[in-house]
Write a protein that binds this DNA or RNA. Structure first.
Length: 346
DNA sequence: ATCCAGGGCC
DNA sequence: GGCCCTGGAT
């Protein structure tokens, strides 16, 4: 970018006023609790998905104290389906720390916010700039795309030193101190640009307020940025799910260990092989096993090939940390999305 | 069916 | 650098 940084910030702020997003439920507030809750939910998750969860959480937990007072189970149940469940566990831990270490008030600086569980550098900066007007840079995935394109920043972001340099650039581009009251709008403007204009696939450069400053636009192929060499290679794993049901329809669900996939959630018992699943059943005769249709569930780093195996069993204890749950109890449990889907179809 | 986007923790 | 989940685009 050849123009002065001030020009960039000015244009982003001006554009946010006229063309940014203004009606989202976590906007038009400086309540750190709402901003924090929305920022955690929006990590790795689309706005359209977050909307319903946000209102449910706010209805049940109107403030950080009510969230801190809740059980982790209840938080996981409300989070069920959003994914990345460590976010929910950290959300709960964070609420408790805010109450116990900070008297129920969120700290007012990015530096202190970042000491809390689940709040990294970018989320801390988002909260501090939105709620307290702090002059501090965010750098989430959307903003990385905007800044690498505007700057023509072609260094590989998989290299930690390059990523640090981009953080430095993000800080350099902040509104000047005289415009510090513009920080909430500037931060929101960067997010809105990345989410609605500077898209990964088909950027709408004709609608972009900084296309005149943008190196990538001048080069002609904005999609060339950002550069990330890290190639995800996904492994594959087969798992067998024991779908045990009583005659009345109750299903045995057990808590998943922490850490690991679906940590802390309730789930059908998981086995590495069909033999291991069979070996786990109570001794003596039981109803025949019925193999359900296998399906694939994709995680970031591996494809899980899930093989449900159904069996009817008497109501006896099947293992530790589990219980029989009737269908009307399932919605109150934290269940992984594929298990929720499976039970819903069954 | 396959690919891809998307922060923080350990 | 590996690990965590889901939904949307293609």
């Amino acid at each position: 970018m050849t123009a002065a940084p001030a020009e960039f910030a000015t244009q982003v702020v001006r554009w946010q006023k006229s063309h940014g997003r203004h009606g989202l439920p976590w906007q038009n507030t400086r309540d750190p609790y709402r901003v924090w809750l929305s920022e955690i939910m929006l990590q790795q998750t689309q706005v359209s998905t977050v909307l319903g969860y946000f209102s449910q959480f706010l209805a049940r937990f109107p403030d950080v104290r009510s969230l801190a007072a809740a059980s982790l189970d209840e938080v996981l149940a409300l989070w069920s389906g959003l994914g990345y469940y460590s976010r929910a566990r950290n959300l709960h831990r964070c609420a408790r720390q805010v109450v116990e270490l900070h008297g129920g008030e969120f700290p007012r600086t990015a530096e202190l916010l970042q000491t809390l569980p689940g709040i990294g550098r970018s989320t801390a900066a988002a909260i501090a700039s939105f709620c307290f007007g702090e002059r501090v840079a965010i750098l989430d995935g959307n903003v990385k795309r905007v800044l690498t394109r505007v700057l023509g920043f072609g260094d590989d972001l998989a290299v930690a030193a390059h990523e640090r340099r981009l953080w430095d650039e993000a800080t350099r581009l902040l509104p000047q101190r005289a415009l510090a009251d513009a920080m909430p709008r500037y931060t929101q403007g960067l997010m809105d640009l990345g989410a609605t204009v500077c898209l990964a696939r088909n950027p709408s450069c004709l609608l972009c307020p900084v296309s005149g400053l943008c190196v990538a636009q001048r080069e002609g192929v904005p999609e060339n940025y950002p550069v990330k060499s890290r190639k995800l290679k996904r492994s594959s794993q087969s798992l067998w799910l024991l779908w045990a049901q009583t005659r009345s329809g109750a299903v045995w669900l057990a808590r998943r260990p922490t850490p690991g996939v679906w940590a802390g959630l309730y789930c059908l018992p998981v086995f590495d092989s069909r033999e291991a699943l069979e070996a786990s059943l109570p001794a003596g005769p039981h109803a025949p096993l019925r193999d359900g249709a296998a399906f694939t569930h994709v995680l970031t780093h591996k494809d899980l090939h899930l093989h449900p195996v159904r069996v009817q069993l008497p109501r006896a204890v099947l293992g530790e940390d589990g219980d029989w749950f009737a269908a009307d109890a399932w919605p109150q449990l934290g269940l992984p999305a594929p298990v929720r889907k499976l039970l819903g179809e069954g």
